[in-house]
Design a protein around this nucleic acid. Sequence first.
DNA 1: TTGTAGGCGTTATCAT
DNA 2: ATGATAACGCCTACAA
Lengths: 364, 364
Amino acid sequence: MTKTKTPSAVSPAAQPRAAARRVTSYDVAMLAGVSQSAVSRCFKPGASVSKSTYARVMKAAAGLDYIPNAAARSLITRRSNMVAVVISQMANLYYPEALAELSHQIARRGKRVLLFTMQHEADVGRLLADIWQYQVDGAIVAAALTEEQIGEFERRRLPLVVFNRNLRRADGVNSVLCDQYEAGRLLAGRLAAAGHRQFGIIAGPADSPVATERRHGATDRLRELGLPAPAMVTGQFDYASGTHGLREIIAQLGRVPDAVICGNDVMAIGCLDCARHELSLDVPGQLSVAGFDAVEPSNWLSYNLTTLRQPIGHMAQAAADLLAGLIDAREGETVTAQTRTFAPQFIDGATARLVALKPDSLAA
Amino acid sequence: MTKTKTPSAVSPAAQPRAAARRVTSYDVAMLAGVSQSAVSRCFKPGASVSKSTYARVMKAAAGLDYIPNAAARSLITRRSNMVAVVISQMANLYYPEALAELSHQIARRGKRVLLFTMQHEADVGRLLADIWQYQVDGAIVAAALTEEQIGEFERRRLPLVVFNRNLRRADGVNSVLCDQYEAGRLLAGRLAAAGHRQFGIIAGPADSPVATERRHGATDRLRELGLPAPAMVTGQFDYASGTHGLREIIAQLGRVPDAVICGNDVMAIGCLDCARHELSLDVPGQLSVAGFDAVEPSNWLSYNLTTLRQPIGHMAQAAADLLAGLIDAREGETVTAQTRTFAPQFIDGATARLVALKPDSLAA
DNA sequence: TTGTAGGCGTTATCAT
DNA sequence: ATGATAACGCCTACAA
């Protein structure tokens, strides 16, 4: 299976890792015949250097492959040009898209992403100490933070943008989010309006605030409308949770529900596939299925899923904007915290019946 | 659409970003009544400190929220505990999985990922200068590097592991890869053995070495077998390329080919959906479709794609292992470059006919 | 075991 | 415009 080819005879280039003394600005200064500070200035954008020195220095630098040492620079400037991005569910299909966009947006502002990943969102606490260590200029966190943890960011004056987490304590904390509770309400409402009465819900994991809000939004709306309590199961945001979830809901109810609301698209796709391919149900004829996120596969022809889109590109851009603003704010300046809320967008796919079977709307 | 809620009256906590003097080891030393070096030693794993001083120092540190400054440390230790990971196609579904695994493996070795993303693989050159800047301990690069670029890593003695790129110059370069050329040959061979004669190929982008190798592997094998030249189109590794690709191939040939080999799974899925839902073709009855990677959706019930899996988890682990070894090697030590090659694994899905229609094998 | 002192590579301040 | 010089926060001999 694994062919470990230790190159022995074939590959001559065994690199001797000698202690290569680093090239510093002193070396460049010496070669260029100027002072070390002159070299430093040449690498600072708006500095005052004469054309001739600049040319000599740059030529020497190029000859020596000199590049300023960011660690040393950050020591004095207090700017590392690194931004921490904390993300939990890389498997989630949704987060890679967000991360790609964040990385892009952060790069164009001259900074880089220091990536912190974790298996479970609750592990975020253990990462914090590392974040402090690395002296990042700010952090974008896509995980639930406790009040205490937020407080620590404030104490350390570390600019923070919370991504897609609706925190209990909203004030004083910058965040970019999509209104998940509203999304849940909206979806439940649309389905109920079409006459669906018995719902099933395949919710996301209990430790995910996003999952919780979507679930509450849906259940609250159903209750308001006086519909029967939905059958409820919990999943892990993955495909298998969708297939198992549907079976379990059917077992709970003793029949196929009218509609299933899934905590995200991947579970909805699992649910859909189970319904069609395992249970031979007609979707949306016998059963409506809907999800959240509008990840790429939800739009594929085999699915064409009814779902709610989060404007992920805009959200990432907003997060990067917000953070950049916080970082660039002169010290001592007062910055008021913002919450940028994006509205979810209803995607009218083909997996949910959205018109009433009998036009009982005439009776109203 | 975007509701920017500037909290005005509601939110009192407008944080004044005062110049918070950082807590240093001197502060801790003062509070604990010891020297600064004592504090330093307390944060170094195998140092010699008495129990009592250690306790006092740690108590003071905790009280002040002291955390060592990694930038300052790296200045003298020459270890930043950061690893650069360079990745191009985050949209590719394959790379997020790799990145998640890499991040995990690197984290468990006490290091963090500094992420470098780019739109096109050819842009890697522009990132290099940044990599040097940040003083990373090593780099894992999932992009094609020129000889010159590799040479620059060597000159700077920066440990490098090339991920999933078969370089022309293999010696002296540490790399982890899946044999893409062989994978292409294998797939073409299996399909040909089942009697498919007229092939179509939806290849990946021309600037992707992985795409090129898969394509060459397939075309070489078909030529060896004396089969007619395949219809060839180029895609961007995305879903739309798969749907367009199939139509274009049919236009080129004037008929539906026997089989289409797609440069990756996402294009294969696009091709498959187009065949089934737009052209109403029976797959694999009238047309066989296959891809590469075995990304998660390829395994979903609606697709059950015939494909070749790359053992991505193992590859990521191997890359992290390799890099860690290079970094930990004592300076001056000679390290021989390795290439760890992983074999692709054939996934016998349901989108390709793999048995001959007429048992003409009896005739042989 | 502990403290003293020098240095890591840069930027910033201040003369010149 | 340029060059000394003092930080930045930490690690590490070396001496005690």
